[in-house]
Write a protein that binds this DNA or RNA. Structure first.
Lengths: 232, 232, 232, 232
DNA sequence: ATGTAAGCGAGACGGTACGTCAAGTCTTGTT
DNA sequence: AACAAGACTTGACGTACCGTCTCGCTTACAT
């Protein structure tokens, strides 16, 4: 019976309060809503949580780490609904994601920790592990489901499949984030529909162009619209 | 012959030093490279620029505004090359943009000011005006050129054209930003090619789906791949 | 040929404005009243006087010098009234002096420049010349008048006379200043009477002790102390 | 039954460092000597004391309060020696007081805080409590001793006694301060003798004038003035 | 049951940067 | 030249947080 994690060999002394952890993360989100990232201070969080500053520092190295943890759980709310068709599922998840990014605690925190992560490798990993990577399964799950439905063909090459999933993830997450936070325009259902159409058309067309015959890679590059294209 | 701006009717006193402005912006970028956003201080910038702190505050309201101005000019370097085909042009501009985002002064500053802008309307406008909006012309220019080449059909509806340009801009910029800063993976030419293919396929397919017959918007929603799709 | 002062050999260029000088000193006193010494700024004085800061610095080396000049003229208001007897005259001048020290521009400025003068020899001289020395004549004048009236004996030794005048001046000015500014108690006519009695009794007694053959203490002493014998 | 001070019911948190307090006050005096009042800065004091600026501000509201406290203890050095006769005692204490005022930390600080106190009631009280009032006992003690020796008659009226003590205090302190700091002349033993004679002659004569039945001025007057009869 | 080792709230500590203000200088154009 | 205007450098101001430390007190496990 393996008692515990190897890094924690039966710690002695008073154990850390689990309530404190919860209170701190809750207080952090609250403070994010009220003050935003840049005005949030460790002291304020401690006060809101009814906890001493030292207790925060005992658990987190600093503001960045604390905020990542506080926000990460919000991203776990996302889930892929089964609405019967891939486009519908994608649209729904896009809207979910946009709604998440509209929440004040998320919008102010996400870009800020990403900004910090550009100079802090450990933070970058932490973000990747607790926020980004956790959502990638949505893409995989969506593809799998679409393949079961026959909306997408099976992908024989596992490596290609993984690369494609990453690309799609960056496109979806990037577009929604950019629309929401940088362009600062709302992601409404109209935008979600047009974006989904663009994405899935691209997926389909590209696959079609590559599969049948199939033409060599050289020609595989679409001229953009062999047939007259238009606005999405 | 327009004599002068009405707001500035021959200001009296010693005029502001134009050299100082340039030195400050340069020092700001330098400091961004050395220290990153969060460690950058007004005092450090002032010192590097050989200028007093008060001179900074006389011109900019704070760190955010200063950094936006310092970084904005870098985005003006972007330009759409004419490589003969739309895919080539897109790929090139994607790589250019990625290269810009890899620069330390850009990567640390961009996300940070965007994060701040979520709580500061004026800052949001400033970013939109001096950074985002300035790059949108690349999309318009690319479409125009593609239409001249016959790669894309004319878009009769101006409103639709504008909406589509916005969408494409968010997709391109978002995907590149997300790949670079969030996923923290390099944007190499392979990724750029695959992304471009996805985007332009989507554009073409969507346009094709909408145009000919043409089915109403209801049906215009692609099932993802009427024809068997696959990985991009 | 009364051309000019040697230091000013027919200056060329625009002559200094005499109005400016008056306006500046007036503005300085005004500012002293409103803000007190420590909050008074050169910029504020310049603004009140409708003058540029450079104009101030062209005439005075700094705040200290300016304030000394601005306040010095107030001390010239003091004069020794002729009320018929030495005690009455002294009492009157004590009350005059106290009233001057109660004025906000005087009380805040005097101690401050004295404090500064402890580290600045030039300032000390300036204060001595424009404020202190100018008032010493009141003592000399009072003694002379008292001698004419027969209230005080003639002092044959000029050196002793001078030393005594200095002592009396320090005692009078010191006591009034200390009572007003340090003890922060009012100098009312009761205090003035008691102080005057103490001072003149001392003078008389000391003189009597020194001049055995002379008249007794009774006559040499001021009438105020003689019969009614108010308590000190 | 004397359990505790009500204001300090077992303070929690880290206690204030007593060393810091001492170091700060010492550093303040040092800085006063080196820089004088107007050049003294909180930052400099903090540096000299090896203490953070915030530690200063946690204990004192500002420069004024700090300096009053730093200088106040110096005044506690004053004490009335027992040299056998009132004139000798007074002379000695006058010289002591003058020596104290000659010290650079005292001379620059005293006038400055008095100047500030003209606009700050709390500061005035603080000065009165920690500096002025503390020295008044010297006058009371001197009178008491002189009465025991028979140099001064008993004063039956307590109110008159108090008023007279205040007057004498203002006269002594004022004269010495004025001589030292305003006239900027040295208080040597000659001046001290002449001043003492003036003061005590005045006291004696005034008392004599008030107490007809009592001994004549000759005896009631201190020996110092009696025979040698030095000029005032 | 009793150590003992850690956790805990409180708050002082040495620091760094903030954004402001005043001092005194310098550079315009105007008088 | 002196002037009004105002931008400039310098340096102190007093505040806010930082992350660490020192207290005296709990709390739980291991004897």
């Amino acid at each position: 019976m393996p008692s515990r994690t190897p890094t924690e060999p039966t710690r002695s002394g008073r154990p850390r309060s689990a309530e404190a952890d919860a209170a701190i993360l809750e207080a952090t989100r609250e403070s994010l809503v009220d003050l935003g990232w840049s005005k949030l201070t460790m002291g304020d969080v401690a006060t809101r949580a009814g906890v001493a500053k030292t207790t925060l520092y005992r658990r987190w190295a600093g503001k960045n780490e604390l905020v990542v943890d506080a926000v990460a759980v919000l991203f776990d709310e996302l889930e892929l609904p089964d609405l019967g068709s891939l486009p519908a599922d994608v649209e729904a998840v896009v809207l979910q994601f946009a709604a998440l990014l509209e929440r004040p605690e998320t919008k102010t925190a996400l870009m800020a920790v990403v900004a910090e992560s550009t100079r802090d490798e450990a933070l970058r990993d932490r973000i990747r592990d607790s926020i980004v990577a956790r959502q990638k399964h949505l893409v995989l799950q969506g593809r799998e489901r679409a393949q079961l439905r026959g909306e997408l063909p099976a992908e024989p090459d596992a490596l290609v499949a993984a690369r494609t999933a990453d690309l799609i993830f960056d496109v979806i997450a990037g577009a929604v984030v950019h629309r929401t936070l940088v362009s600062a325009e709302p992601v409404d259902s109209d935008w979600a529909r047009r974006f989904t159409m663009l994405l899935l058309s691209g997926l389909g067309a590209a696959a079609a162009g590559r599969q049948p015959g199939a033409r060599g890679p050289g020609e595989s590059r679409p001229t953009g619209a062999q047939k007259p294209g238009g606005s999405v």
